[in-house]
Write a protein that binds this DNA or RNA. Structure first.
Lengths: 191, 191
DNA sequence: CACTATATAGACCGGTTGATCTATCGGTCA
DNA sequence: TGACCGATAGATCAACCGGTCTATATAGTG
């Protein structure tokens, strides 16, 4: 007889925080989070120990979601590694075009969390390495001469496109990045 | 008989704010700024009208300094437009290697200033357009087939390199970006 | 000298921060 | 029924926020 939906306070808090920390930065007040999630103050400290714990968990959740998106995007492009890589940049266009787009959530988090020892940094760092690993994996399948460097370059293009998408509305960063991504991917040997 | 140095409170405040807003984000407290600058509280409101005014002026100063750096870097590379453009990416390596490097100040500011109407945004936007204009100017001198798009791509590479430099310590973003910049610059026609 | 502008130190304001607390409500299960 | 547990609302806390204030000190100019 229990309603299958009706997420608990922990879930509501995570969802509200995921949305608010992106739109208003990591500096959002606890009160705003609690109000948006309709959750008691105490529940935050019961479930996450404090604001930092909540923020860290939010980042973890976000990375999982984004990694799933990478996987789905690439799988949706078929088996060819080249198609799978370029699909990421095609998808970027939609990401940037989304209504409330404000750039890369993880870069914003790293810049906002001044304390270098904040646990959130480890989450974002690990995420980037996993994404880089996915890119490198496809490049290896293509027998790219420098898969590690090329993966770094593709990630650089992604970060650059997200930054440009957040700051230079008139440009078309996804298309610009995709064009360069093709050059990176199709490099067969040093010139 | 007046000592030529001994900057006034306004100058001291700007310098302290320029440093602290970069290392600790735009969220630094006014007290921290005043203490670091050794300036009376009132002076801040006399000279800048408030914290927002100070932050905006800090961004303005920073953009002027960075634009001078672009100009000096390019002029130091000689007359050839190709050399002048690549010098920017060579300089990037030094920028990223600086001790307290924390990524692009202006991207961080845009992400931190949640209010879309904050006057700081206009400063950063104008700065990016001027930098893009400098790049495009050199590309035109090279008779690049698509100077505007290529300038966007070079700026995207710069932002990507700065982001990677702040978040992925092991990689060499400046060199990676420079390599791609060469491809952008040397594009003579559509493939 | 006096006048004015500018800088200083620091008290003070209302509001907000993150965090801890008590008390109560509403189920579940024995 | 009654014990228990997660969740709730909300009072309360010290600390800090940006901003205004008064009073005093200093420097330059007439």
């Amino acid at each position: 007889m229990s309603t299958p939906d009706a997420p608990g306070p922990r879930e509501r808090l995570l969802e509200a925080a995921q949305s608010l920390t992106y739109s208003h930065g990591m500096g959002v007040g606890v009160d705003a989070l609690l109000t948006a999630a309709n959750v008691a103050r105490r529940s935050l400290y019961e479930h996450f120990g404090g604001k930092d714990g909540l923020l860290t968990e939010v980042l973890k959740r976000a990375t999982e979601a984004d990694e799933s998106r990478y996987a789905a995007t690439m799988d949706g492009a078929g088996e060819d590694p080249r198609d799978r890589l370029l699909a990421v940049f095609d998808d970027l266009e939609g990401v940037i075009a989304e209504p409330g787009f404000r750039g890369c959530r993880y870069l914003a988090a790293d810049l906002a969390l001044t304390d270098p020892h904040h646990p959130g940094h480890a989450v974002t760092r690990a995420y980037r390495e996993r994404v880089s690993g996915r890119l490198e994996h496809e490049l290896r399948r293509l027998e790219h001469p420098r898969p590690a460097l090329a993966a770094d370059q593709l990630l650089l293009l992604i970060d650059g496109a997200l930054a440009a998408g957040a700051t230079r509305l008139k440009t078309e960063p996804a298309a610009a990045a995709r064009e360069l991504a093709e050059l990176v991917i199709d490099t067969r040997s040093r010139p």
